[in-house]
Design a protein around this nucleic acid. Structure first.
Length: 701
DNA sequence: GTAGGGTTAG
């Protein structure tokens, strides 16, 4: 045996005070061989090797050695094997070993309890944790530093679950109460004790207490916040969107050399991203000397949460390229990017990966898939994924309800909402947004009112801007304009914004009420004088009423204020390319073919009874020009391109940035019949599925 | 020998 190995052995056997004794697997095996050769398999030094194997997480080696020990193995051997089981997540084996140990009358030593407490925490098994706690009390070990630290961790993790099951030692005592009790009675506390309590407070939303503890910790002797402390409290500033406090912590981390720590790194990335400082997140990401899967997850999620969808996808690709194995979280972070980009084929590919990696039962992923399929126009697939979710939580329900709402399946949305209630899932703020949206898209006025009234009364959720907007939309579209006006004027808790008034303004346009529109516009401009949408809408209302002078006056006013209309734009994915069209856009290389196809279609449409609705052209121009303007609306160009560039029978999916115009809506119904294809158009509020001459919205939109 | 931290869905 070499000198260096001899040195290692003597170092190990001398029980060096160095706690993190680093021994390689090879060294441990050599030591084992040496001991077996010189002292035999039964010598007690083998137990030291077992603890080395256990620390190295070598389950097979540990087990093999453990089984070769004379019976009954001593306490140290048991604590080593139990630790190994726990760190391999073989939690039931941890407990069955503990039982065997006791049935062999081996007295449990202090070292078994932390591993067992950890196992009970991972199993979320409250009763086990309590009996372990009781056991340590009987043995007088409950204030042992390591055991108390483990107890604090266990109780902190059970805090929320404890309220539900009411299993804490004394009725009405929460997990955090137990945390405090254990912490208070400890004769000696170390930095781990403080960090565990701080993390417990932080993870349970007790931010004031967490930050107080950090200050207290500094005062109390020599303990200084370390990297563990910082990574526990950074999420507080992320949630509170307090970038200044977050920066202070960042500064402290830099001064103390923690800024390259992977844990702090991902907290910093997340904190800056949640504070809308994506550039700072990127900097924190790039300076990390070593990036793990969570660092990648954080930057991907950060990009996606800040609307940088392509960037988020780019980081996901780079993560794969650098051979970092994606985790379930990686997928639930990146799928929403596909949803927002309407990238159906990419979303499908990712779904494939998810299934292959066995992540398809993850509830976060499932909900994001439901939403992605719905937003990409495939409501059937959204429903398929939803139906296969084992445990449907509120987010999953909300995703499918919102999906149905967007696709105009209002009755499905309403009955799903009822099913959710029957399932005992409490609806939240967003769930009510979804069901109210469904009602407004289908004109279910009574149902909408019922839900609106029940949210505060039955569920204690105060209606927010989105709910008021949905009800205003519901009333407005149904033509109950005065009622909607009163409803908005009497909003409680929140002030009506320009966007809520615009909803009513749009309804005034649909129901041709110039008088109320003028009243609404006044209200709107008083809260949002720069709202260009309002000017456009009002000028369109005047135009539709042939009040060209008023319309022109508004447009001049807009121009003076430097407000510009959002240009209408539609796009379609053909092959792997996105083709974008503006109204009257002649820049597409196939423009001539597109135009010709539209001419042919128009001829056939008119034979079928289509009459152009030139009222939809809101300029004071002659009829011929009006025809041409409508003929060149962006959605028609995109659809025509889809027809000539894909094989017969392929569904055409078009997306438009603003609402589809009424004449185009009629025209597309004719087109779908003539070409025998399904056409899906997603505008900024919903999907229209055109098939065989009709639209899924039932012309109510 | 035994204890603590970061990321995710509507």
């Amino acid at each position: 045996m070499s000198n260096s190995t001899q040195h290692t052995i003597s170092k190990i056997l001398r029980k060096t005070p160095n706690k993190t004794l680093s021994v390689s697997t090879r060294q441990a095996k050599q030591l084992h061989a040496h001991i077996v050769k010189t002292k035999g398999t039964l010598h007690s030094d083998n137990i030291l090797v077992l603890s080395l194997y256990s620390n190295l997480n070598l389950l097979q080696h540990s087990l093999h050695l453990f089984n070769s020990l004379p019976s009954p193995p001593p306490p140290l051997a048991w604590s080593s094997i139990i630790k190994c089981y726990t760190s391999h997540s073989l939690l039931h084996l941890s407990f069955s070993s503990f039982n065997s140990m006791r049935s062999l009358s081996v007295p449990p030593n202090r070292h078994v309890f932390p591993s067992l407490l950890k196992a009970s925490t991972l199993l979320k098994h409250h009763k086990l944790a309590h009996s372990l706690h009781a056991c340590t009390v009987r043995l007088g070990l409950d204030s042992d530093l390591y055991i108390a630290n483990a107890l604090i961790n266990t109780y902190a993790k059970f805090h929320n679950a404890g309220k539900v099951f009411d299993v804490f030692p004394k009725r009405g005592e929460s997990g955090i109460d137990c945390v405090k009790k254990v912490f208070d009675m400890m004769p000696v506390r170390d930095v781990v004790s403080w960090n565990t309590v701080i993390a417990g407070f932080a993870q349970n939303g007790m931010y004031v207490e967490a930050l107080d503890m950090v200050r207290e910790m500094g005062k109390n002797g020599k303990l200084k916040p370390d990297s563990f402390t910082l990574s526990s409290i950074l999420p507080i500033f992320a949630e509170h969107v307090d970038v200044n406090k977050g920066k202070e912590i960042h500064g402290y981390a830099v001064r103390n050399g923690f800024d390259g720590d992977v844990f702090i790194g991902s907290s910093l990335i997340d904190m800056y991203a949640k504070c809308n400082r994506l550039e700072c997140s990127l900097r924190a990401f790039y300076i990390l000397p070593r990036k793990d899967a969570i660092s990648w997850n954080s930057i991907i999620a950060g990009c996606v949460q800040n609307g940088e969808f392509d960037r988020g996808l780019g980081f996901f690709r780079r993560m794969l390229k650098e051979n970092v194995k994606p985790m379930a979280v990686s997928f639930s972070s990146v799928i929403p990017a596909c949803a927002h980009l309407t990238a159906l084929s990419l979303g499908r590919q990712l779904h494939g990966c998810i299934v292959r990696l066995g992540f398809d039962d993850n509830e976060f992923i499932a909900s994001s898939l439901v939403d992605m399929y719905a937003k990409c126009g495939n409501i059937k697939m959204a429903r398929y994924v939803f139906d296969r979710i084992d445990k449907r939580d509120m987010v999953a329900w909300t995703a499918i309800i919102m999906g149905c709402a967007m696709h105009g399946h209002a009755l499905d949305a309403v009955s799903l909402f009822e099913n959710m209630l029957e399932d005992g899932v409490r609806p939240c703020y967003v769930a009510f947004m979804a069901v109210l949206t469904a009602c407004s898209h289908a004109g279910l006025v009574d149902e909408g009112w019922r839900y609106f009234n029940s949210m505060e009364r039955d569920f204690g959720i105060a209606p927010g801007l989105e709910h008021y907007a949905a009800v205003a939309d519901l009333l407005g579209r149904a033509g109950r304009l005065e009622e909607a006006y009163d409803f908005i004027s009497n909003m409680r808790g929140v002030q009506p914004t320009g966007s809520v008034w615009s909803i009513l303004l749009a309804a005034c346009r649909a129901h041709k009420s110039v008088e109320l529109a003028e009243k609404v516009l006044d209200k709107l401009l008083s809260v949002d004088s720069e709202n260009m949408g309002a000017y456009v809408l009002m000028s369109n209302i005047y135009s539709a009423a042939q009040r060209w002078k008023d319309a022109a006056r508004l447009r001049i006013h807009m121009r003076k204020k430097g407000l510009k209309k959002t240009p209408a734009c539609s796009w379609i994915e053909v092959g792997n390319q996105v083709h974008t069209f503006m109204a009257g856009d002649k820049s597409h290389p196939y423009y001539d073919k597109i135009n010709k196809a539209l001419d042919v279609l128009l001829e056939q449409m008119e034979k079928e009874g289509y009459v152009i609705d030139t009222n939809q052209v809101l300029h004071d121009v002659d009829e011929e020009l009006k025809r041409e303007l409508l003929h060149n609306h962006s959605e028609r160009l995109a659809i025509a391109y889809g027809i000539i560039s894909t094989t017969a029978g392929t569904t055409i999916r078009v997306i438009k940035n603003i609402r589809v115009c009424a004449d185009c809506h009629t025209a597309i119904k004719f087109i779908t019949k003539i070409v025998g294809r399904e056409i899906t158009v997603r505008d900024n509020s919903r999907f229209h599925h055109f098939k065989n001459g009709s639209c899924s919205c039932g012309d109510y939109w």
